[in-house]
Simulated scan of single mutants.
Amino acid sequence: MISRSRGRLVRGGILVAAALAILVPIAFAVGAADAVASEPTLVVTGSDGTELVAVPLDDDTEVVIEYTHSVEKTLVRDVYVAGDETLVMTRMEFSSFGAGLPSQAEVTERDGRYVYEPPPEEYATLHLKTGAVADHDLIVGDERYDVAALSGYGAVELTVERRISTPL
């Protein structure tokens, strides 16, 4: 009876050792993946799922959607910053009041333009329908992207993903 218990213990010990031999490298691999630096990346995807733009973001990088208001024919800028895998709208800048612009909201005037600072709202996915009249541009830091042309004047989605940074 004692040998039988010992046999179970040994076999149980072997099973535990075998399980650890499998699980420990997996745990280290997962830990190593977490240790690799990842950075927020703005990703613009076309309606067919094609990735059109992928730009790494710093904590304070502004993401600006700039377009011409379809009725007023004036410049509008929607300004966002990256949250935790989200976009957070910080302000809207415009030159005249028109359809879809915050005419009843409290605005300030800066450099001849109206600035609306809405309560913070996070967007996991920002849906944007571009067009030839509005001619939407995306400005990230010092880079400008003609997302209207890149998407064939179609719909795009903007998301923030954590991507592994690649050294230069």
Rank of each mutant, 00 (worst) to 15 (best):
R4A: 13
D78W: 02
A134R: 06
V10Y: 04
P102H: 10
L75Y: 08
A54Y: 10
V147P: 14
L158E: 04
V76A: 05
L168K: 11
V88N: 02
L126G: 07
L128K: 14
A149Q: 15
V16K: 08
G49P: 03
E39Q: 09
S70D: 10
E161L: 07
G98T: 10
H127Y: 03
T74I: 00
L9P: 01
E117R: 03
A21R: 15
G13L: 12
E157L: 06
K73V: 10
I164W: 13
G31P: 11
T74Y: 02
S3D: 06
E157R: 05
E161R: 15
E122N: 14
A148C: 04
L75P: 08
S70F: 07
Y114N: 08
R4P: 14
T166D: 08
M1L: 14
V156Y: 04
V63N: 12
L57N: 07
D58M: 06
L101D: 02
R4Q: 15
V156P: 09
L23K: 06
T41R: 06
A105R: 02
A33C: 02
I139P: 00
G131C: 12
A17T: 11
A148E: 01
Y153F: 14
R6I: 11
I164N: 05
R77I: 06
P102S: 12
D135M: 15
P102R: 12
E93H: 09
L9M: 03
G7L: 08
S95Y: 15
D60K: 15
